[in-house]
């Protein structure tokens, strides 16, 4: 079986933490969102709005191969 990998989309100021292999980002088995956030050096308080496959999730949510992970920092401009 292929190693698990996910797709990552980081919005706004978090874009600077996006890995080059964001479309095929390898994760260990049983990785959580927090593991990925830490691995990418994203400050945890900046990871405000997290979603996996178009559904809201949080730092403790488990990731599985093929998931699409999106993270928004706080955004308030108008």
């Amino acid at each position: 079986m292929a190693n698990p990998e996910i797709q990552i989309k980081l919005f706004a100021t978090l874009n600077k933490f996006a890995p080059e292999n964001g479309d095929h980002y390898p994760i260990p088995d049983d990785a959580t969102v927090a593991d990925v956030v830490t691995a990418l050096s994203i400050p945890k308080k900046e990871a405000k709005l997290i979603f996996i496959n178009n559904t809201r999730a949080d730092l403790d949510s488990l990731l599985k191969s093929g998931d699409r992970l999106g993270i928004f920092p706080p955004v308030g401009g108008g």
């Binding site: 706004a12 100021t13 978090l14 308080k45 405000k48 709005l49 706080p74 955004v75 308030g76 401009g77």
Partner: peptide, 18 residues
Amino acid sequence: RIYGPPETAPSKGAEKAL
């Protein structure tokens, strides 16, 4: 649900930098 509790939310968001 978007920003967390109001007391922990910053007054400005990423727009301040971007």
